[in-house]
Design a protein around this nucleic acid. Structure first.
Length: 299
DNA sequence: ATGGTAGTCATACTA
């Protein structure tokens, strides 16, 4: 069983890249973020042709989360937005307000479903923009809400089957960022954000990539600008956090940095994969080769 | 040179 998470930065723009990657890595379940689609525009047919069921929770122009599950996998107990009700419409003619109305609980950032007995939660954490801003405070409150949701899942007896994955917009430690001082104007690396992610992990979850890899310089996101990818100036902000039963089945974890390359234009995030029970279809992420070449070039 | 790219309602915004 291979499960992956990928912030695709528009599923419409990335449709071909995602279909190619489904062939390359053959995940059984793919969590996606930033689909930037309304539910009516979700490419259910295209995923069906590729052999996947598609669950989508969107709002239009921004955000949007999805779960693709291979045909035949049992899917039920779907929850959107923590079960707190509908989100805004940010599509054409929609009801989305100005940025003064910023409310991460009115945005399409969370979708859960039970897939083949796994309690899958796909999340797209708010960016936070600037430390101390209303967006940053909203980000911290959003993590608190996610924590309460996970408490409810544990109380319902599903804590050990949890797999919470997505774009957390936080680099958990200094090892997860190319330069803590240069990173993102302070957000993504601030202590309150890191404490918020630790509080999630402390609910009995395992950071699956770190359970298999302790190397520095392994990132899931690189800014499009200034050749950041080609210098490996990035951050590890996409995570798959596993409950104890899921973590106990973990046999591999990888970040497919090849998928961050174009052409065509890639997402600014790379997919993160984990394998349960047995290794999935092999693919060459080539971290050692890439970092060696970059070290020579930038020496 | 204080930028840089890419997504979106199309143009200024979000990341």
């Amino acid at each position: 069983m291979r499960i992956a998470t990928w912030n695709v930065n528009s599923l419409k723009a990335r449709q071909e890249a995602v279909e190619n990657w489904l062939q390359r890595a053959a995940p059984d379940i793919l969590l996606m973020q930033e689909t930037k689609l309304g539910d009516a525009d979700a490419p259910v047919m295209a995923f069906g042709m590729a052999g996947y069921q598609l669950l989508h929770h969107g709002e239009g122009r921004w955000n949007g989360v999805a779960i693709a599950a291979r045909d035949g996998l049992k899917v039920d107990d779907i929850v959107t937005n923590f079960g707190d009700g509908p989100v805004r419409d940010s599509g054409p003619g929609g009801t989305a307000g100005s940025e003064d109305d910023f409310d991460p609980f009115d945005e399409a950032r969370m979708l859960a479903a039970t897939v083949d007995g796994l309690r899958i939660v796909t999340v797209y954490a708010p960016n936070g923009r600037v430390v101390g801003s209303p967006f940053y405070e909203g980000k911290l409150k959003w993590f608190e809400r996610l924590g309460r949701y996970l408490d409810d899942e544990r109380a319902a007896g599903r804590g050990n089957q949890l797999l919470v994955g997505g774009d957390f917009n936080v680099a958990p430690t200094d090892k997860d960022v190319w330069d803590p001082d240069a990173a993102h104007g302070g957000t993504h690396v601030s202590e309150p954000e890191r404490a918020a992610v630790r509080a999630l992990i402390d609910r009995g979850l395992t950071d699956t990539y770190r359970a298999r890899h302790d190397e520095p310089g392994r990132f899931t996101w690189w800014d499009y600008r200034a050749g950041m990818f080609h210098k490996n100036f990035g951050m590890r902000i996409d995570l798959l956090l596993a409950g104890s039963d899921v973590a106990g089945r973990l046999v591999d974890a990888e970040i497919d940095r090849q998928a961050r390359k174009g052409p065509p234009v890639p997402s600014d995030h790379a997919p993160l994969t984990i394998d349960l029970d047995e290794p999935g279809k092999p693919f060459d992420a080539d971290w050692e080769g890439a970092l060696s070449r970059i070290a020579k070039r930038t020496r």
